[in-house]
Simulated assay, not measured.
Amino acid sequence: METEIVSDVSERTEAILAAARRMFLGPGRVSMDDLARDLGMSKKTIYRHFPDKQGLMTAVLDRQFGVIERLIADAAREAEGRPFGERLRKFLVAACDGLSAIGAAQLATGRGDAVLRRHVEHRIDAVVYQPLEELFREGQRQGVLTAPPELLGEITRGAVERLLNSRLPSQLNRTAADLFRTTVDTVLYGAIREDHP
């Protein structure tokens, strides 16, 4: 009997997380009342699983950052043994695809409360920018990069955050990830030596 109860609680938690992800990471503001109505359950039931809206959002975001980590790891495996430029491009495209899917830049730069913003900033730094900086340092050690890794890190950070917050993707009828691919090709590839594999 206990297994059934645990399974029911786990299924309900999963349903809450799935609905919260769909609703909270979409456009517009969503209240806990909206979420409860969508789920067909009371707010009290939701609060049995999560202490408050902030706790629920943190759980949703942590799951999404786990997805981004997997995307980046898959891209790294796919590019293993390939030239540095290809490895870098796959890393950046995977990261940008994942970040754009959750609206991470918007969350980090003003949407939501201060605690969630700090949480998102911390997670983006840990999941994307720190591994990227290590990849740039590796490129420098290999003699592949013509620019300092720190500068490339700042250029990349600025491009990612700007494109994820920009209206340009919708104006050009492209995704932020599409435009970021172009940015990688035009800005970062200019920093990679042509005479190096």
Rank of each mutant, 00 (worst) to 15 (best):
Q54P: 01
A59I: 01
L61F: 13
E69N: 14
P27H: 09
G66T: 11
V60H: 05
R37E: 13
R70F: 10
A36I: 01
F50Y: 15
S31A: 09
M23V: 13
F65A: 12
I16K: 01
R48D: 00
L56F: 07
F24P: 00
G28V: 02
T58F: 08
H49D: 01
A15I: 02
L25Q: 07
I16D: 00
K53A: 11
M23A: 14
L39T: 01
V60R: 03
D34K: 04
A18E: 14
M57H: 02
T58H: 10
V67K: 10
D74P: 12
G26W: 03
D52Q: 09
A19V: 02
V9H: 08
Y47A: 00
G26E: 07
A59G: 08
P27M: 05
A20H: 00
H49F: 05
V9K: 09
D52M: 10
T58Y: 04
V9S: 05
A36N: 07
D62L: 13
R12I: 00
S31W: 08
E69P: 12
F50M: 08
A19L: 06
A36M: 08
R37Q: 14
K43G: 00
E69G: 15
K43E: 03
R48S: 03
A59T: 05
D62I: 07
A20V: 00
A36V: 03
S42E: 12
A36T: 04
E11G: 06
V60A: 07
F50P: 05
E11Y: 03
M32F: 02
D38A: 15
L17F: 04
R12S: 07
E11H: 10
D52E: 11
R21P: 01
M32D: 04
I72F: 10
R37K: 13
A18N: 10
A20C: 06
I68R: 06
R22V: 10
Y47L: 13
R12F: 02
R37L: 14
L35N: 02
G26L: 06
L35R: 03
D62T: 09
A73T: 15
R63G: 15
E14W: 06
D62W: 07
H49G: 02
Q64Y: 09
R29E: 13
R37P: 03
L71D: 15
T45W: 02
R63I: 05
I46E: 00
V60Y: 06
Q64N: 12
L71T: 05
F65D: 09
V30H: 12
T13I: 03
E11A: 12
A20Q: 00
F24Y: 13
L56Y: 03
I68G: 06
T13Y: 02
R48K: 11
A19Q: 08
G55M: 04
D33R: 15
F65H: 11
A76L: 14
M57P: 00
L17M: 09
M32S: 13
A20G: 03
G55H: 06
T13G: 01
P51C: 04
Q64W: 06
P27N: 08
Y47W: 10
I46M: 00
P51E: 12
L71N: 14
L56V: 05
R12H: 05
R48Y: 01
F50S: 04
Q64C: 14
F65S: 10
S31Q: 08
